[in-house]
């Protein structure tokens, strides 16, 4: 089974040289720490920064320079700043190659829910609805089950939808799943996790074809 760092590490293997990538808050942000050697990716922050650098040293913290998670960051060689309309312009017009975000639920048809729990939690969608409506490739990074132990990979989302049929891949602590017309296709198992266990924890249609390899992280 993977911890959150393992999930981030596995997603980092999907990065390709020259990609423009938007990383959501939480586990997705960690993906930046595992960019494979020899590959250059440019991180987009929807609050108006292309080319996110590492976190600042304590003596270079700048209140005017934050990422979309409101954390202090730095720029890097080749960075640029822009306003929020242009930021979503580059997202909407398909310039961002990969979007990684968290979710509360993903359905077997690629629907995603991650912005609201009616009557309980109302944080808002932020940029998520814009991102999922336009991104070319969307990977969801999330825990396989919720706090009550119920599957988050569902036949249909029960929470208010963020976007329809947009998720291409899901990485959880149990495995990697491609979303294909028939449902969640198991691609890799996390170390030490059996196909049977994944089946038990997946409510949506799980497709298992042949021998499923265990993922190799390093």
């Amino acid at each position: 089974m993977l911890d959150k760092f393992g999930i981030a590490k596995r997603i980092a293997k999907e990065l390709q040289d020259g990609y423009y990538v938007n990383l959501g808050i939480g586990i997705p942000t960690l993906v930046a720490n595992y960019v494979p050697e020899g590959i250059e990716v440019i991180l987009q922050s929807e609050n108006g920064l292309l080319g996110i650098g590492p976190f600042p040293y304590a003596d270079e913290v700048d209140a005017d320079l934050i990422n979309a998670g409101k954390q202090t960051v730095t720029t890097t060689n080749g960075s640029s700043f822009f306003d929020s309309a242009m930021s979503f312009g580059m997202i909407r017009s398909g310039r961002v190659d990969l979007t990684v975000l968290g979710a509360m639920e993903v359905a077997e048809n690629g629907d995603i829910a991650n912005w609201k729990i009616p009557g309980k939690m109302v944080k808002g969608m932020g940029g998520a609805m814009d991102l999922v409506a336009s991104a070319k490739n969307i990977i969801v990074a999330m825990q396989h089950v919720n706090k009550a132990g119920e599957s988050k990979l569902l036949k249909r989302c029960s929470l208010p939808i963020t976007g329809l049929g947009c998720v291409k891949k899901v990485v959880t602590e149990l495995g990697v799943f491609d979303i294909i017309p028939e449902g969640f296709k198991l691609i890799e198992r996390a170390p030490g996790v059996s196909v049977e266990y994944i089946k038990e924890k997946t409510e949506g249609n799980l497709i298992v074809v042949g021998e499923i390899p265990e993922m190799i992280l390093d």
């Binding site: 929807e46 306003d83 929020s84 309309a85 930021s87 979503f88 997202i91 909407r92 912005w115 609201k116 009557g119 109302v122 808002g124 969608m125 932020g126 940029g127 998520a128 609805m129 814009d130």
Partner: peptide
């Protein structure tokens, strides 16, 4: 918000920017 004292309209961030 949850108690109904405040009205709120949540809209996607890009939509907010583009409507401005």
């Amino acid at each position: 918000l949850l108690s109904g004292e405040l009205e709120v309209e949540l809209i996607p961030q890009g939509t907010l920017a583009t409507r401005c």
